[in-house]
């Protein structure tokens, strides 16, 4: 059972209270993008076995979108953070590095 703490309301929410929203920090392909860029934005996913950053919505709570850093191989949660950012905050990245020394970084 996956439990994530909503960074807005501070509730430790169990997964039935949340809605998963897929990979986080995707860069939207804008006007003038090539077909390849648009395809990458819409369909091509990292789908890593290990550290994964993803979007979640606290749908049966405050209703807000937030981000979570999680390990897909162990289901360990490294932390959650607000969605108003283009990259994972430093403290989360440091926490992941401490636990996964061979992690290659979020980009």
């Amino acid at each position: 059972m996956l439990i994530l703490e909503c960074p807005y309301c501070g509730v430790k929410a169990e997964e039935t209270e949340l809605t998963p929203g897929g990979e986080a920090h995707l860069k939207r392909a804008g006007p003038g993008s090539s077909d390849d860029e648009f395809e990458a934005y819409l369909f091509m996913r990292k789908n890593p076995k290990g550290v994964h950053f993803e979007r979640w919505r606290h749908s049966h709570g405050c209703g807000k979108w937030f981000h979570a850093a999680r390990c897909t191989a162990t289901l360990e949660v490294f932390g959650t953070y607000p969605a108003q950012t283009t990259e994972p905050p430093k403290d989360i990245q440091d926490r992941i590095r401490a636990k996964r020394p061979d992690w290659e970084g979020w980009a």
């Binding site: 999680r70 897909t72 191989a73």
Partner: peptide, 11 residues
């Protein structure tokens, strides 16, 4: 499940 997972354990 709706989230990425490699553990062969579901919710």
């Amino acid at each position: 499940d709706g989230f990425n997972n490699y553990t062969q354990r579901g919710s």
